[in-house]
Protein backbone atom coordinates (compact mmCIF):
# COMPACT_ATOMS: atom_id res chain seq x y z
CA UNK A 1 0.00 0.00 0.00
CA UNK A 2 1.28 3.37 -0.91
CA UNK A 3 0.27 7.01 -0.76
CA UNK A 4 -0.44 8.33 -4.20
CA UNK A 5 -1.29 11.81 -5.42
CA UNK A 6 -3.37 12.15 -8.57
CA UNK A 7 -3.60 15.52 -10.33
CA UNK A 8 -6.06 15.94 -13.19
CA UNK A 9 -8.50 18.67 -14.10
CA UNK A 10 -11.04 16.19 -15.43
CA UNK A 11 -13.28 15.04 -12.63
CA UNK A 12 -14.21 11.82 -14.37
CA UNK A 13 -10.59 10.82 -14.96
CA UNK A 14 -9.68 11.78 -11.41
CA UNK A 15 -12.55 9.76 -10.11
CA UNK A 16 -11.63 6.77 -12.18
CA UNK A 17 -7.97 6.89 -11.17
CA UNK A 18 -8.82 7.38 -7.50
CA UNK A 19 -11.33 4.53 -7.46
CA UNK A 20 -9.00 2.22 -9.35
CA UNK A 21 -5.96 2.90 -7.18
CA UNK A 22 -8.00 2.64 -4.01
CA UNK A 23 -9.29 -0.71 -5.16
CA UNK A 24 -5.65 -1.78 -5.48
CA UNK A 25 -5.24 -0.90 -1.82
CA UNK A 26 -3.50 2.45 -2.14
CA UNK A 27 -4.29 5.61 -0.29
CA UNK A 28 -5.10 8.27 -2.82
CA UNK A 29 -5.35 12.04 -2.65
CA UNK A 30 -6.49 14.04 -5.65
CA UNK A 31 -6.14 17.60 -6.90
CA UNK A 32 -7.76 19.41 -9.82
CA UNK A 33 -4.77 21.37 -11.11
CA UNK A 34 -1.01 21.63 -10.84
CA UNK A 35 -0.97 24.32 -8.19
CA UNK A 36 -3.42 22.44 -5.97
CA UNK A 37 -1.39 19.29 -6.58
CA UNK A 38 1.81 21.03 -5.57
CA UNK A 39 0.18 22.34 -2.40
CA UNK A 40 -1.05 18.89 -1.49
CA UNK A 41 2.32 17.37 -2.27
CA UNK A 42 3.99 19.89 0.03
CA UNK A 43 1.62 19.25 2.88
CA UNK A 44 1.72 15.47 2.58
CA UNK A 45 4.14 12.74 1.78
CA UNK A 46 3.48 10.70 -1.33
CA UNK A 47 5.19 7.61 -2.70
CA UNK A 48 4.15 8.40 -6.24
CA UNK A 49 2.49 11.19 -8.20
CA UNK A 50 0.28 10.67 -11.24
CA UNK A 51 -0.46 13.84 -13.19
CA UNK A 52 -2.26 14.98 -16.29
CA UNK A 53 -0.44 17.35 -18.63
CA UNK A 54 -3.05 19.84 -19.75
CA UNK A 55 -4.48 21.60 -16.76
CA UNK A 56 -5.49 25.11 -15.87
CA UNK A 57 -3.53 27.27 -13.39
CA UNK A 58 -0.42 25.06 -13.54
CA UNK A 59 0.15 22.39 -16.14
CA UNK A 60 1.68 18.98 -15.59
CA UNK A 61 5.15 19.91 -16.84
CA UNK A 62 5.34 22.85 -14.46
CA UNK A 63 4.15 20.62 -11.64
CA UNK A 64 6.90 18.07 -12.32
CA UNK A 65 9.53 20.82 -12.41
CA UNK A 66 8.26 22.25 -9.16
CA UNK A 67 8.12 18.86 -7.48
CA UNK A 68 11.66 18.01 -8.50
CA UNK A 69 12.80 21.22 -6.88
CA UNK A 70 11.46 20.02 -3.56
CA UNK A 71 13.97 17.90 -1.73
CA UNK A 72 11.31 15.44 -0.60
CA UNK A 73 10.18 14.76 -4.17
CA UNK A 74 13.57 14.65 -5.83
CA UNK A 75 13.39 10.93 -6.59
CA UNK A 76 9.71 10.23 -6.19
CA UNK A 77 8.22 8.44 -9.18
CA UNK A 78 6.06 10.82 -11.20
CA UNK A 79 3.88 9.43 -13.96
CA UNK A 80 2.40 11.58 -16.71
CA UNK A 81 -0.97 10.86 -18.20
CA UNK A 82 -0.49 11.55 -21.88
CA UNK A 83 -2.27 10.92 -25.10
CA UNK A 84 -0.64 9.32 -28.08
CA UNK A 85 -0.71 12.63 -29.93
CA UNK A 86 1.51 14.46 -27.49
CA UNK A 87 4.79 12.77 -28.25
CA UNK A 88 6.74 15.97 -27.83
CA UNK A 89 5.05 16.50 -24.48
CA UNK A 90 6.49 13.21 -23.29
CA UNK A 91 9.94 14.50 -24.12
CA UNK A 92 9.19 17.77 -22.35
CA UNK A 93 7.89 15.80 -19.38
CA UNK A 94 11.04 13.70 -19.23
CA UNK A 95 13.08 16.84 -19.53
CA UNK A 96 11.24 18.27 -16.55
CA UNK A 97 11.99 15.14 -14.57
CA UNK A 98 9.02 12.83 -14.96
CA UNK A 99 9.68 9.17 -14.35
CA UNK A 100 7.44 7.77 -17.03
CA UNK A 101 4.08 7.99 -18.62
CA UNK A 102 0.83 6.25 -19.05
CA UNK A 103 -0.83 6.65 -22.41
CA UNK A 104 -4.52 7.51 -22.50
CA UNK A 105 -6.81 5.73 -23.05
CA UNK A 106 -5.81 3.19 -20.47
CA UNK A 107 -7.83 0.65 -18.57
CA UNK A 108 -7.78 0.18 -14.79
CA UNK A 109 -5.54 -2.90 -14.97
CA UNK A 110 -2.94 -0.99 -16.95
CA UNK A 111 -3.07 1.84 -14.44
CA UNK A 112 -2.59 -0.50 -11.50
CA UNK A 113 0.27 -2.36 -13.13
CA UNK A 114 2.01 0.83 -14.22
CA UNK A 115 1.78 2.30 -10.75
CA UNK A 116 2.98 -0.98 -9.29
CA UNK A 117 5.93 -0.75 -11.65
CA UNK A 118 7.18 2.50 -10.17
CA UNK A 119 6.46 1.52 -6.61
CA UNK A 120 8.44 -1.72 -6.58
Amino acid sequence: MAQILIVDDSASMRNMVVTTLKSAGHQVVDAPDGQAGLDKAKSGRFDAVVTDLNMPVMNGIELVKNLRNLSSYKYTPILLLTTESSMDKKAAGKEAGATGWLVKPFNPEKLISTVARVLS
Binding site: M13, D52, N54
Partner: peptide, 10 residues
Protein backbone atom coordinates in the same frame (compact mmCIF):
# COMPACT_ATOMS: atom_id res chain seq x y z
CA UNK B 1 -8.48 17.37 -24.76
CA UNK B 2 -10.33 16.36 -21.62
CA UNK B 3 -13.28 15.04 -23.58
CA UNK B 4 -10.95 13.08 -25.76
CA UNK B 5 -9.05 11.59 -22.84
CA UNK B 6 -12.18 10.64 -21.00
CA UNK B 7 -14.07 9.27 -23.98
CA UNK B 8 -11.11 7.10 -24.92
CA UNK B 9 -10.77 5.77 -21.42
CA UNK B 10 -14.46 5.13 -20.97
Amino acid sequence: HSIKGGSGTF
